[in-house]
Design a protein around this nucleic acid. Structure first.
Lengths: 142, 142
DNA sequence: CAGCGAGATTAGATCTAGTCTAAAGATATT
DNA sequence: AATATCTTTAGACTAGATCTAATCTCGCTG
């Protein structure tokens, strides 16, 4: 279940990202956590895992590269913070309104919403956001 | 369809927000747009509508008050920016990936997803976020 | 109706997440 | 080895949002 160095490298290469040491440790961390860390949390977690210093700019550069390459997704859950998610399976999120904890929800659960989700999650609100191309035509609003 | 001063005031009062002049012009603006403005956009739009200067801090304070009172919702669509939405009908969002334009999608459309939504919207991705209480129990992950 | 107190507003300082810059380092190619 | 391209680095900078402390507003009490 835990990707080894080889599989982390192959994930990067197969997505067209050159596997530098800095990118390897960042990707390895993201691929092995169920958490949804911020850039600062990534920096704290992986600095020290390299013989050289890891700069803040490299963490941000790498996260943007991984996002552009499709290795990670941005998760916008709290104002002013971007969290990162390396779960490549199609899934949604459940955010605990008290603690802020973010838990992945697999798509199958959503399909059976109400039947399965409510056991573990008490849903207060849902925010669905679609991304795509808006076909221009005369406006029609709610 | 366009709320007059009286109805704006009654929305504030019915939600427990004291209707000061500053709050009135801000709420009026939000209730009358289909847009999803940022705090800065709200400031730009309403400053000048009062005989006195409107400070940035008041805009932020007011937006947070309106959010806490349930008059507006935060929309997290772009990193580092909070947008505001005074559409009190339950709805979702569609974000044009080229322009960033955010359009409301009524719940009924989502229920019939694929049948109705695809006419106007070419969906590239969906982000569903639930908010609520996570019932603590042994972990079970995807 | 003067004085008080609670809450609202203000300008500007401050905080913080993230980006930019310019120099140095690494890697591949010739 | 020389060159070109890409990556990394430290630190300066930016932008969105919050904080601070003073001032203002207004309802209430005496």
């Amino acid at each position: 279940m835990i990707p080894n160095d080889h599989s982390v490298e192959s994930v990067l290469v197969s997505h067209g990202v050159k596997p530098t040491p800095q990118r390897m440790v960042i990707a390895e961390y993201l691929l092995n956590t169920l958490d949804h860390p911020t850039a600062e949390e990534v920096l704290a977690a992986v600095s020290g895992k390299l013989p050289v210093a890891l700069s803040r700019a490299t963490v941000y550069n790498t996260l943007n590269s991984l996002k552009d390459a499709g290795v990670v997704r941005e998760v916008l859950a709290e104002p002013g913070k971007v969290r990162y998610d390396a779960n490549l399976l199609s899934h949604h999120h459940f955010i605990d309104i008290k603690t802020g904890q973010i838990v992945d929800v697999p798509v199958e659960k959503v399909e059976q919403l109400g039947k399965l989700l409510d056991k573990k999650f008490k849903v207060h609100g849902v925010q669905v956001t679609f991304f795509g191309d808006l076909q221009q035509e005369e406006s029609e609003q709610t």
